[in-house]
Design a protein around this nucleic acid. Structure first.
Lengths: 357, 357
DNA sequence: ATATTTAGCGAAAACGTTTTCGTGTTGAAA
DNA sequence: TTTCAACACGAAAACGTTTTCGCTAAATAT
């Protein structure tokens, strides 16, 4: 077991100084061709690679991005990670991921753990508990320490930073409008409770679409699911809740659900109640994941383009990191270029499948 | 924007030396109570936290685990990550993830990028291309540098390291046996090509189960899908291939598929051909993901317990890292404790749902 | 022959820690 | 009064880099 070789060892072995080795390896013309050759050959032989940690310490930057998300076993979030990783890799960065599990405390602990030098910047999506508490001091504290943040999907006005969001509102409008165009008269909305911003926006989009078509929204047709932070184990509850909802509103001929799971569950329940899809009931859901694609019938969805979100977020963050870098070498007294944060809106796309006519 | 405060700054501000500050903060009784109080108060006020990078350089360990997987938008792999992160976090480690995208080259690049000091050890699952090439030198090189590796799921005998695997063989035996017990006479196998070890093992399990029941395997009933590394865009191909297969073998009354996707697609096709599930055809798949749970009818599966795999892998790696640590402080001449690598086998579990009787 | 440039290299600082080994001051013991 | 231990603290090394500055010797210019 041979540990990685260091500059010092090369220097000793070749009887030159550390500085000479460093310069020779970087191809400095300060060093004679002879010595350069000798050193480079030796380094190649022993497969020398500079130690990243030492470089990070010296350069005061780690070339690492911290990703902080509520959950990873989740199609949307993992797609975003894939996008981030793609860009990060291409631009010479690594990604380190932390999971908040929707918990405020874990979010803080993770941030503090990473903010002590481990990363250059964050890309994150806020946990539900944090949204509920509306306590965002840890984000602002981090930004104040000079660590930039890019938020995606679940963002918040109280924090000034770059943001990448989905056009939830218009996505919902488009979805509901499509159902209307395809002849639905009584469109139900299955959504979450309101504190998650994206859910709220989608609900507003639903209402807007109805209003645009001069249809009065019927509160009876809106089902708000109280998410117990743990959908997996309460699948039956979800089903029976939706079943109850359907029985209460037999007129329903269209369903707009704010996520895949609600949508496929709605299809399942509808069929169980003898309704045919899409003939009797048409269904469309937000989020284009595996479920939608492989359900029978396959589900029409509003695609969020998670990978694109991740890519945009990564580019935004790295751009800012590199801007900071050059800015600090400029001698002009950096007129505080704050408040020019960028908000990128990724357009949604309707994907029509078998659950709509 | 106030940058993070350092020991040096505290020292200057309080007019003591850096060493005094360091000792005071660690509660060394070498420092008087007065100064300790003063320093600790000041540190708390300015929210001092030691710089991780500096610590990593000093201690020559990063408290970070490198995860290297082929794909992240994948239920099984993301579940494993969740397990790893859980244990890592609990034991004071961070995780940094790299994606190989099933590519040999990307796997190597990622490894080299992380192996230069960024991480203390790897947890990884081998990419398909690497398995195909059977070139494992980068793994062995990494291990030789003193960086331990734990492999999971897709492992290989050519590399000596700790491993965590699923009991694919017995899982398959159990699944097929169950189909037989439930009355199936003509059980089809839908599998991948052979070079991915887990696929091969599951195929062997299928054959074994038949043999145990004195049934001769019919090669006609085995469908090997050539995966084009990109299933998503070839969904129709998959469907038509399976449809063709069903038409060729009308006697099929049971299907064992080596993954979720093949299983649900088989169900879809069977129903399209007028077969009822589970009455005419019973189906069971490997991997218990979202698809299985939410398909209609819901799919019986062989669960792999991805999270448990991740947790075991993380514990194995951290145990080894900490063993190395104490070992190197021992003065006894470390009898090379090699070849005592651990292979943990996680038992599979059959989850019965609606696709079997 | 003397002054000045230049090539080639080394010493040292810096990044932020921890830890070992002094060192000076105080108080008590001799 | 002298000696010695205890106390409280600082200097310096180390982790592995890069970079600035300085130095020596040879080469050129005067």
């Amino acid at each position: 077991m041979k540990r990685k070789i260091t500059l010092k060892q090369i220097a000793k072995e070749l009887d030159v100084s550390v500085s000479t080795v460093s310069k020779a390896l970087s191809g400095s013309k300060e060093i004679s061709e002879d010595t350069t050759q000798k050193i480079q050959a030796f380094a190649k032989l022993y497969n020398y690679r500079p130690n990243n940690i030492a470089l990070s310490l010296k350069n005061r930057k780690t070339k690492t991005i911290g990703i902080l998300i509520p959950e990873i076993v989740h199609h949307f979030f993992s797609t975003v990670i894939r996008g981030i990783e793609r860009i990060a890799n291409r631009r010479g960065y690594n990604v380190i991921v932390g999971l908040s599990n929707e918990s405020f405390t874990k979010e803080i602990i993770n941030m503090e753990m990473l903010a002590n030098g481990s990363i250059d910047g964050f890309i994150l999506s806020i946990s539900k508990e944090t949204l509920l508490k509306q306590d965002y001091h840890h984000f602002n504290a981090t930004i104040n320490q000079g660590i930039p943040i890019v938020m995606f999907d679940r963002v918040v006005n109280e924090v000034e930073c770059d943001k990448v969001i989905v056009d939830d509102f218009n996505g919902a409008v488009k979805a509901v409008k499509m159902l209307l165009d395809k002849g639905c008269k009584h469109i139900a909305l299955i959504t979450t409770v309101d504190y998650v911003s994206v859910g709220r926006l989608r609900t507003q989009g639903y209402l807007e679409a109805l209003q645009l078509n001069k249809i009065e929204a019927d509160p009876q047709l809106i089902l708000k699911i109280e998410d117990s932070l743990n959908v997996d184990n309460h699948l039956e509850d979800l089903e029976s809740e939706i079943e109850h909802f359907f029985k209460l509103n037999p007129a329903i001929d269209g369903v707009f659900a704010v996520n895949e799971l609600y949508a496929v569950t709605a299809m399942k329940v509808a069929r169980k109640l003898g309704r045919s899809i899409p003939d009797d009931v048409q269904v469309i859901g937000f989020t284009d994941g595996v479920l939608s694609k492989h359900a029978t019938p396959s589900l029409s969805t509003v695609s969020q383009h998670g990978q694109k979100i991740g890519e945009q977020a990564a580019n935004l963050l790295i751009d800012r990191l590199e801007a900071i870098e050059t800015e600090s070498t400029q001698y002009l007294g950096s007129a505080d270029s704050k408040s020019d944060f960028i908000k990128v809106v990724i357009e949604t796309e309707i994907i029509e499948r078998e659950s709509t006519k």
